[in-house]
Simulated scan of single mutants.
Amino acid sequence: MADYIHELRGLVGHRPLILTTAAGALLDSQNRLLLQERTDTGDWSFPGGYMEFGESFQETCQREYLEDAGVAVECERLIALFDHDFYTYPNGDQTQLITALYLVHQVGGELLTTATSETQQVKYFPLDQLPPFFNDQSKKMAQKVIEMVAANEAD
């Protein structure tokens, strides 16, 4: 996918692009949230990423989760769709990110224990002790997860 985005950027430069992404919220038995420390900024985000041509949001979430966190997941349900978030990367690339956030559960794999080209580390965080996020969309996604957990605990 990076080649596809680089090809687009070669054509449009730093002009704004609308990009579709998918991410997953994986909670452990203590309702701690798994997050990825990004290698590009050092900030934290949900494991996830850009959709490849021909993929569904769920397929993107599953592929990206395995790449970013080492964990095979299944998507249980859509938590929310985020479609009004903008981000400018340090190199000036502007994007409007349309992201589907899923509640996921682990079906295989193991958490990454070494850094990759995109992930410094993965770690579970209590919902009241979340780290600095990559962008505003990640903050909004975390808030939706907090609200979901609170609603489930109230039932």
Results as ranks from 00 to 15, higher is better:
148 M>P: 04
114 T>V: 10
149 V>Q: 01
96 Q>E: 12
1 M>R: 15
142 A>N: 03
148 M>V: 04
54 G>I: 07
87 Y>C: 10
83 D>E: 14
23 A>L: 09
70 G>N: 03
65 Y>S: 08
77 R>K: 13
149 V>E: 00
17 L>I: 10
111 L>F: 03
140 K>Y: 10
130 L>K: 02
58 Q>A: 13
128 D>P: 01
27 L>H: 05
107 V>E: 04
61 C>P: 03
96 Q>R: 14
3 D>W: 14
138 S>L: 00
133 F>S: 03
152 N>H: 14
82 F>L: 13
32 R>F: 02
122 V>R: 01
55 E>S: 07
81 L>G: 06
13 G>D: 05
26 L>R: 00
93 D>S: 02
6 H>R: 15
12 V>A: 01
67 E>H: 14
22 A>G: 07
55 E>Y: 09
34 L>R: 02
106 Q>K: 11
112 L>R: 01
141 M>P: 08
21 T>F: 15
27 L>I: 05
27 L>G: 02
54 G>P: 05
2 A>G: 12
140 K>N: 09
108 G>P: 05
5 I>H: 13
102 Y>G: 04
19 L>P: 07
14 H>R: 12
61 C>Q: 01
15 R>M: 13
115 A>W: 06
11 L>K: 13
98 I>D: 01
136 D>I: 08
131 P>Q: 02
95 T>G: 06
149 V>M: 02
19 L>F: 14
57 F>R: 02
57 F>W: 04
83 D>Y: 12
95 T>C: 07
147 E>G: 03
31 N>F: 08
43 D>S: 12
47 P>S: 08
16 P>V: 00
118 E>V: 15
51 M>Q: 06
71 V>Y: 00
100 A>S: 03
87 Y>P: 04
32 R>C: 10
150 A>K: 05
10 G>E: 06
37 E>W: 00
61 C>I: 08
153 E>W: 15
141 M>T: 09
59 E>V: 10
27 L>R: 03
122 V>Y: 01
84 H>Y: 12
81 L>R: 10
124 Y>N: 04
103 L>K: 01
27 L>E: 03
152 N>A: 15
27 L>D: 01
144 K>A: 15
75 C>G: 05
9 R>T: 07
142 A>D: 02
89 Y>D: 11
50 Y>N: 13
43 D>V: 00
20 T>M: 09
155 D>T: 15
59 E>R: 10
118 E>D: 09
78 L>A: 07
25 A>F: 04
52 E>T: 13
18 I>F: 09
65 Y>I: 09
61 C>V: 07
141 M>L: 12
102 Y>A: 04
35 L>H: 03
1 M>L: 15
121 Q>R: 09
2 A>M: 14
4 Y>E: 10
109 G>K: 04
101 L>D: 03
98 I>P: 02
24 G>C: 09
99 T>P: 02
91 N>G: 00
67 E>Y: 14
69 A>K: 05
115 A>L: 08
12 V>T: 07
8 L>Q: 07
66 L>H: 12
1 M>K: 15
31 N>I: 05
69 A>N: 04
40 D>N: 13
4 Y>P: 00
95 T>N: 12
38 R>A: 12
90 P>L: 01
27 L>V: 02
133 F>L: 11
138 S>R: 07
90 P>H: 02
81 L>A: 08
34 L>W: 02
150 A>R: 07
138 S>T: 11
13 G>H: 01
45 S>D: 03
104 V>L: 15
48 G>F: 05
125 F>C: 06
134 F>P: 01
98 I>G: 04
4 Y>N: 06
141 M>Y: 11
152 N>I: 15
